[in-house]
């Protein structure tokens, strides 16, 4: 089973419902079975509770429309802590979502994240945190692998997914190498040869997961990082889906 751990609703083709359908058409062509979906169409760096609830409702609808394909990740703004905790309960504890997605609303090692991590641990929900290390300058509250590492040390019982492997993966892998509760996902950057091989060498194949960041990125360009990597077939199978099955309890 191939699981893409990083897919979004946004895009400029048709309605969100249309996009959920056509994304599956393309996913079918490249052999992706399940897609972890997060964020709606707001693209708001710091969404208020009404906005992140509306975004999550779009994901919820996709999960209901295609329950065998989409897996919901609940989008939060830790700046609205109480509302975020309530949203975790609405979407994960009482709803069909299985994970948490955090983007660029707050650096992820701030104290507000601690209650969210504690609730994630209770529910067994992994946290997918966007990260990037940009020499051109990060957004004001855009986390880096350093921030994830700080949070992961405080919450060893939570599984974290390092979004985009920090973008600059040669640095990102080093920063989280010694944290067994952090997996790195390969999405969002250019399909640079050697990325997956270095991840496997430094973290182990059991801590690398496939993601695409579709529809902004091509499913195919990101799959190439795994399908083209000089690794064993067993390692490839773990990265393409086995590891996410383990993290999600599928």
């Amino acid at each position: 089973m191939v699981i893409d751990c990083h897919v979004h609703v946004q895009g400029n083709r048709g309605t969100p419902d249309d996009r959920m359908g056509y994304l599956l058409d393309y996913a079918d062509r490249v052999g992706i079975d399940r897609l972890c979906l997060s964020l709606g169409t707001s693209r708001d760096y710091s969404p208020d509770p009404e906005t992140f609830r509306r975004d999550n409702d779009m994901v919820w609808r996709a999960v209901e429309m295609y329950p065998e394909r989409y897996i919901g990740f609940c989008y939060l703004n830790p700046g609205y802590l109480q509302e975020s905790l309530e949203e975790i309960d609405r979407c994960i504890a009482d709803g069909p979502f299985v994970g948490i997605k955090l983007w660029v609303a707050m650096l992820c090692d701030q104290p507000n994240l601690d209650p969210i991590c504690e609730r994630a641990a209770e529910l067994g929900a992994p946290i997918l945190q966007h990260t990037w290390l940009k020499i051109t300058g990060n957004l004001q509250y855009e986390s880096t692998p350093h921030n994830v590492a700080n949070l992961a040390r405080r919450h060893p019982d939570v599984n974290f997914i390092l979004g985009h492997s920090g973008g600059n993966w040669e640095m990102g892998y080093r920063i989280v190498q010694d944290l067994p509760n952090v997996c790195a996902e390969v999405s969002g950057g250019d399909p640079e040869l050697g990325q997956t091989e270095m991840g496997v060498a430094m973290l182990g194949a059991e801590r690398i997961v496939y993601g695409s960041d579709a529809p902004g990125r091509s499913f195919a360009s990101q799959l190439a990082k795994v399908r083209g990597a000089d690794i064993t077939d067993d390692q490839r199978a773990m990265i393409l889906g086995g590891n996410m099955r383990r993290l999600l309890g599928l």
Partner: peptide, 8 residues
């Protein structure tokens, strides 16, 4: 780049 990217 991985050449598989353009091919896929």
């Amino acid at each position: 780049y991985y050449p598989e990217s353009s091919v896929l």
